[in-house]
């Protein structure tokens, strides 16, 4: 395998892993449910994309590559839907929301 591809793969996989871990740290550190959704969406978008791109460069058989691209597409299509459904459900259940500093706006529901 060409060393250039290997290096590109390394870079993509490592940066993907970095974003995945940032998502995990965010999931633990952030103060309330709504902000944690943002952290989870880091993992779902760039983390997943970079890892799959990194794997894509190591593909030897075309069908394997196509399946990876299909996984990528499914992740792109489903991740916003599930985070939207989650936040909407949490909003209707009046999950407490973290607000920093003085309260700027009332909950305009």
């Amino acid at each position: 395998m060409a060393p250039v591809l290997d290096i590109a793969s390394w870079v993509l996989l490592i940066s993907g892993s970095f974003f995945v871990i940032v998502g995990g740290i965010g999931l633990l550190r952030l103060p309330d449910f709504y902000t944690r959704v943002h952290a989870a969406s880091i993992t779902d978008t760039v983390g997943a994309w970079l890892i799959i791109l990194g794997l894509l460069l190591q593909v030897e058989h075309t069908l394997v590559g196509i399946k990876l691209i299909m996984i990528l597409l499914f992740l792109i299509l489903t991740s916003p839907l599930s985070s939207h459904a989650l936040t909407k459900a949490a909003y209707y259940r009046e999950t407490p929301m973290f607000r920093s500093g003085p309260d700027q706006t009332e909950d305009d529901r």
């Binding site: 952290a39 880091i42 916003p80 985070s83 936040t87 909407k88």
Partner: peptide, 9 residues
């Protein structure tokens, strides 16, 4: 929603 930092409710 797909953009981190904003979620449509």
């Amino acid at each position: 929603t797909l953009t981190p930092g904003t979620v449509s409710i």
